[in-house]
Amino acid sequence: MSRLSGHIERVMEVTQSASAGARSRLAASWYRSRARHGLDPAEHRAPERLEGKALDARRQDHEKFLMVATPRLDRLFSLVGQSGCAVLLTDSEGVVLDQRVNESDADVFASWGLWSGANWSEAREGTNGIGTCLEERRQVIIHRDEHFFARNTAMSCIDAPIYGYDGQILGALDVSSARSDQTEGFNRLIGAQVAQTARAIEEAHFRAAFAEARIVVSESDDTEASTLLAIDQNDLVIGATREARRVFGLDATGALAPRPAADIFGRGDGPSGFEKAERAAVIRALARAEGNVSQAARQLGVGRATLYRRMKRLGLDDI
């Protein structure tokens, strides 16, 4: 029995049972590919691919995403490209929007369908790095015969999801290898770099979306996630990354209703929010004036005597 025939037989055997998903995540993906999407592991058709105006329109729809991703794709490719790897960026449907590949490896990746415009969703290509990453919303490594289609078992794919400023998934970052001697240990090393680059793209996209806001970086137990909040000039939280939404109990997706940053961070305004705001404004003015009350009063547009009275009322007369 050939290697490909053996792979097809194994996939068919695993997917015969509806309880396959309980065995492992890989078995669950194989089962989805067979039962939900009606795919046959022995199929030899080429991946579906957008070209020309259809691909241009898809890229235009993701112009800002591609703009912030471009230098980071270049940086990642500079690290892995000489090892026979290609770097691909997809949209949320698994369509490849951009790629980086060495000329010497281009024919191999093109023959596999790992090329701009190709649709690598799990619904089209079964278990694969891009499609399964998007389906399961997590970082994945699909190594050689872990793929669903027998024709894809010569490749190793390492992927991480990228989320947008609204908490919705934007796409996947993929590094695929053309090396026959690619090891699982090397895949894990590449996987760490893929995850780091995906988070860098996610963070840059978030900052670009809230360019006028103050960006606050918070802590999270997930070291591979960006935990950012966007705060406007009124100290209202107007945006949060997916991980920040989880950490602070905000809506998982969609536009956020503006909320005071003090509420988000668990610091109440006390009996008088206006009094707290006034106190903060006076402290800032005094700091800018290096303690000169007359100068601070001019900044606030009030008289010196008025500022002294306010400082006393606010408990700042000993500053």
Results as ranks from 00 to 15, higher is better:
residue 12 M to S: 15
residue 94 G to L: 02
residue 40 D to R: 07
residue 104 S to H: 06
residue 16 Q to L: 12
residue 83 S to F: 12
residue 34 R to F: 10
residue 88 L to Q: 08
residue 9 E to I: 15
residue 10 R to F: 08
residue 30 W to F: 04
residue 111 S to T: 10
residue 34 R to T: 11
residue 92 S to Y: 03
residue 99 Q to S: 15
residue 33 S to W: 00
residue 113 G to Q: 07
residue 123 A to M: 13
residue 61 D to N: 11
residue 7 H to Y: 02
residue 115 W to K: 10
residue 70 T to S: 15
residue 103 E to D: 13
residue 34 R to M: 06
residue 22 A to C: 01
residue 9 E to Q: 13
residue 14 V to F: 02
residue 8 I to M: 08
residue 116 S to H: 07
residue 122 E to M: 04
residue 28 A to C: 05
residue 14 V to Q: 00
residue 47 P to A: 02
residue 30 W to Y: 09
residue 89 L to K: 05
residue 75 R to H: 14
residue 72 R to I: 01
residue 41 P to T: 09
residue 84 G to F: 03
residue 110 A to D: 13
residue 42 A to F: 01
residue 93 E to R: 14
residue 103 E to K: 11
residue 117 G to Y: 07
residue 111 S to E: 14
residue 76 L to P: 06
residue 69 A to I: 03
residue 97 L to S: 04
residue 72 R to M: 09
residue 98 D to Y: 07
residue 21 G to D: 01
residue 42 A to Q: 03
residue 84 G to R: 03
residue 94 G to K: 06
residue 38 G to Y: 05
residue 30 W to E: 01
residue 102 N to M: 13
residue 6 G to C: 12
residue 67 M to L: 14
residue 96 V to Y: 03
residue 118 A to T: 06
residue 106 A to L: 12
residue 25 R to I: 09
residue 95 V to M: 01
residue 9 E to A: 15
residue 10 R to N: 08
residue 19 S to H: 12
residue 41 P to G: 10
residue 57 A to F: 09
residue 31 Y to W: 15
residue 9 E to K: 14
residue 89 L to W: 06
residue 7 H to D: 02
residue 46 A to R: 14
residue 111 S to Y: 05
residue 113 G to F: 05
residue 21 G to E: 02
residue 64 K to Y: 04
residue 91 D to R: 00
residue 85 C to S: 14
residue 54 A to F: 13
residue 47 P to R: 01
residue 57 A to N: 13
residue 108 V to D: 07
residue 81 G to E: 09
residue 65 F to Y: 12
residue 101 V to M: 08
residue 36 R to W: 08
residue 63 E to C: 04
residue 107 D to K: 05
residue 93 E to H: 14
residue 57 A to Y: 04
residue 90 T to H: 06
residue 36 R to M: 11
residue 20 A to Y: 04
residue 52 G to K: 10
residue 120 W to N: 05
residue 22 A to L: 15
residue 11 V to R: 09
residue 50 L to I: 02
residue 70 T to P: 00
residue 33 S to R: 06
residue 99 Q to I: 03
residue 74 D to N: 09
residue 72 R to N: 04
residue 37 H to K: 02
residue 32 R to C: 04
residue 12 M to P: 00
residue 108 V to Q: 05
residue 23 R to P: 00
residue 58 R to C: 01
residue 56 D to M: 11
residue 10 R to S: 07
residue 57 A to T: 10
residue 106 A to I: 10
residue 35 A to L: 08
residue 110 A to H: 10
residue 48 E to C: 06
residue 6 G to R: 14
residue 64 K to G: 08
residue 113 G to T: 02
residue 114 L to S: 03
residue 109 F to H: 02
residue 116 S to K: 15
residue 48 E to Q: 15
residue 50 L to N: 04
residue 43 E to N: 10
residue 102 N to Y: 10
residue 120 W to G: 00
residue 44 H to M: 15
residue 14 V to P: 00
residue 45 R to V: 07
residue 124 R to T: 03
residue 84 G to L: 03
residue 78 S to T: 12
residue 23 R to E: 10
residue 17 S to I: 06
residue 61 D to A: 15
residue 24 S to T: 13
residue 31 Y to D: 05
residue 69 A to F: 08
residue 110 A to G: 10
residue 38 G to K: 05
residue 91 D to F: 00
residue 23 R to S: 10
residue 36 R to N: 11
residue 53 K to R: 14
residue 52 G to Q: 04
residue 95 V to D: 00
residue 93 E to S: 13
